[in-house]
Design a protein around this nucleic acid. Structure first.
Lengths: 233, 233
DNA sequence: AAAGATATTAAACGTTGGTCATAATTCCCT
DNA sequence: AGGGAATTATGACCAACGTTTAATATCTTT
């Protein structure tokens, strides 16, 4: 069995675990379930992955890859200005979070891990085996890849005039991404009843797009807007 | 032992667990550790809390209470306009997340749970014992309390003229909160090296405050800003 | 084909969340 | 006060599950 076949087998286990994690969640999925679904013995999973959490890191890597595809699908289409790209990105980002919840949760979980990782006092809370694992290390390398693509969109927008030139591309994009993270987590599930309208991610989108435009084009100004639900700015 | 003393004992267990969760994290803290620290037997902890996760829900409730105090401390000081309140709130929010990481993580974890809870397909992923627990139910009731206080700040701002009157207070506040959530999670740990400056939560704050003002006052407009680090808008 | 490296298994281990039978303590009624 | 019911408390026990290990099979190389 060469490196090729080994990768094949790793992939088999990985995909079985993705299926199970998605269906039942991380905790409800037992290592034996993964083994059974991969048609191997339980022990062998520990030959390919250091432990359950390491396996989850591999899943997380896959999650970032998928998210990166969302970013790439947008930037690869030519003939659109940067601002429009960012607006579509935001829509697709929410779609991704909704349709790939397990992946998205893995990404957020990793962001939490990074917080521990960057705090010397808390680093010890991370399982040493995970810390040392190649999957985790790889994630530390690549978890800004999406940010890099997004930054390109801002650069593009500045070039084509759809975004104010005095903005710092990288910082600007991370600001937008931070908004997306917050919106999804806080408003995605809420759907609470405001006094004037039902508020949820769907009714919010127009407001968000508007905010984005105002921020990036610098055209924000007080104006009469109809008090229609979702029309925040 | 009346209801009073029962509460006392619950509190004892709760505080022991808070201490341990904070020190070692949820998973590294064993129920026996909690029992030992509370000077009771392990079995008894299951008399007062349905299971470990239920105990964690009680901790989460405490976390929300603490966060609510942050909100209240700001609104109770009179003589400031709504916009200034929101700006100070954002500063204190980040401080809270940093200085009470375990609590803050509990809050974010609960937000994730709410996502499952509101999706009929995923509701079953929540432990039935937790679903039925009074602590979880209570959380469902109160987890918007902070939002209500924040909304009051916007209302106040509209009244005193520091915030544009056409904004919907509730929707506006949740937009701000969503930003805070995203900033903290995404940028808090990052501290990455941008091309022009080191970017982290600290250098970001001025930009964020500026963004807040522009959004709420409607004074956003293209203008020359020095390309100083952190001065995004 | 022997030696060595790699892959695979089944069984065993150790930890730990959760349960249970039982005991101690408190409460309440006559 | 006495006795029985209700409550509070214990710690041994169990089952589940992540992880390890020792033994075996398979492939690779020389």
């Amino acid at each position: 069995m060469g490196a090729q076949e080994r990768q094949q087998k790793e992939k088999l286990i990985l995909e079985a675990s993705i299926k199970l994690f998605t269906e039942k969640g991380y905790h409800a999925t037992k290592m034996e379930d993964v083994a059974k679904a991969s048609k191997i013995s339980k022990g062998l999973t520990y030959f390919y992955y250091k432990n359950k959490e390491d396996l989850y890191m591999a899943v997380t890597k896959k999650a970032f890859d998928e998210l990166k595809d969302v970013f790439r699908d947008i930037i690869k289409i030519k003939g659109r200005n940067g601002l429009d790209m960012l607006i579509e990105l935001s829509n697709n980002y929410f779609k991704f979070a909704k349709n790939n919840r397990m992946f998205y949760d893995a990404i957020l979980n990793f962001m939490g891990l990074v917080q521990l990782y960057n705090d010397e006092n808390l680093k010890s809370n991370i399982d040493p085996l995970v810390l040392a694992s190649e999957h985790f290390q790889k994630l530390l390398e690549v978890h800004h890849d999406c940010g890099k693509i997004g930054t390109q969109m801002v650069v593009q927008g500045i070039k084509d005039g759809s975004i104010r030139p005095e903005l710092q591309p990288e910082a600007t994009f991370y600001t937008i991404w931070a908004m997306l993270v917050g919106y999804e987590r806080l408003l995605g599930p809420v759907g609470f009843e405001g006094k004037e309208a039902k508020i949820n991610l769907e009714t919010w989108k127009p407001s968000f797009n508007r905010l984005l435009q105002d921020m990036l084009k610098g055209t924000f100004q007080a104006q009469k807007v109809q008090p229609v639900q979702g029309s925040l700015f």
